[in-house]
């Protein structure tokens, strides 16, 4: 059995809107194991980024309330002091953001921005810092480290910038890396390169990765375990093969059947009925997905659905998965034919 790298217990994240707090992440439990890639998927507004940001408390504290526990290396990141958290930020937990240009300072050279990590967390002298920075640039596959070291962010392409961000995130060999949509802003060819790079680096450094994405293709390529989130809750949690081959929850099934795939151009794609409820109007009782599958009898849903282990290491919320069928029965038939 592997050890836990991070353990989230009963985490809720609420945002203040019109003077009232609304839970964007509602009571989730998660364990991230050592050296695994854990993916959190869902559509916009499902709370996946809110979860990731709360690990390092990156939300604006004036408008956000974080409840629960996040255990990392014997410390609770929710209640730890600002000073204590700053020691962990970057050093033990690295973060990669979606938009590399806005994560880099446009006025400083790349080298200086990488070295900032060493200035804050180590006492290396300036020569050592430079050498380490150049090594890092080489590790992330930048062709001319010396040139990149002396350039400004705007002089580099999107893929190169994201590599710089990864270099910074990995500079102090953190044991946990949070990657929030790391490749969403990139072209597919660059995306493949960055994903291959992240996979190699993970193998080398034995770090755990929390991968936040909406792209199921990226999940299939990268993840070991997957949590599917809907409306602030985890609705399904399983190994990556299970999620793709044996999805149970109606939401997971619906998502998978709406991906356009090769050589099936004669079929229609599945769409999900209705739309994601916004934060202020989110249903708080019962199965939150029930309004999206109105053709399923109400009796199929649980009154107070909880995540249940239906097979070893495969968790599903609400009993409605048992008798779920698509409204458009042709989609089911296509699946059987495959």
């Amino acid at each position: 059995m592997k050890n836990r790298a991070l353990s989230i217990k009963k985490l809720s994240v609420s945002f203040k809107m019109n003077g009232q707090y609304y839970k964007a992440v509602d009571n989730i439990d998660l364990d991230i194991m050592e050296n695994e890639v854990f993916a959190i998927v869902g559509e916009s507004g499902c709370g996946k980024s809110a979860t990731a940001m709360s690990i390092l408390r990156l939300h604006n504290e004036n408008y956000t309330k974080i409840e629960g526990e996040i255990n990392f290396g014997g410390k609770d990141l929710v209640s730890i002091s600002e000073h204590g958290l700053n020691k962990i930020k970057g050093k033990e937990i690295g973060m990669i953001f979606q938009d590399p240009l806005s994560a880099l300072n446009p006025l400083h050279r790349i080298g200086k921005q990488i070295e900032e990590m060493f200035v804050i967390h180590t006492n290396l002298n300036s020569l050592d810092r430079k050498n380490r920075a150049l090594e890092l640039l080489e590790d992330v596959g930048i062709p001319n480290p010396e040139i990149a070291y002396n350039s400004f962010p705007h002089e580099l392409s999107g893929g190169m910038r994201q590599r710089i961000i990864i270099a910074i995130a990995l500079s102090l060999s953190p044991s946990l890396l949070i990657a929030d949509e790391p490749t969403t802003a990139l072209d597919v060819t660059i995306q493949a390169q960055i994903l291959d790079l992240m996979r190699d680096l993970k193998e080398k450094s034995k770090a755990s990765v929390i991968l936040i994405t909406h792209d199921l293709g990226v999940v299939a390529e990268m993840a070991d375990r997957v949590a599917v989130m809907y409306a602030g809750q985890i609705v399904e949690l399983a190994n990556v093969d299970e999620i793709f081959e044996n999805p149970k929850h109606p939401y997971t099934k619906s998502l998978l059947s709406s991906i356009p795939r090769k050589s099936k151009s004669t079929n229609r794609l599945n769409t999900i009925f209705g739309s994601v409820p916004d934060l202020m109007n989110m249903p708080r009782d019962g199965c939150r997905f029930s309004s999206r599958i109105p053709w399923i009898n109400e009796k199929e849903h649980e009154e107070n659905p909880k995540l249940q282990e239906i097979e070893p290491n495969h968790f599903v919320r609400c009993s409605c998965y048992k008798n779920f069928h698509f409204q458009d029965s042709s989609i089911e038939k296509v699946k059987e034919k495959e």
Partner: peptide
């Protein structure tokens, strides 16, 4: 290159695809 870079939904092909890309 473009086709090899497109993510594959079949998790079993992961290793194979990475090699093809290389």
């Amino acid at each position: 290159r473009l086709m090899a870079a497109t993510p594959d939904l079949d998790t079993k092909n992961r290793q194979k695809n990475a090699e093809i890309r290389k």
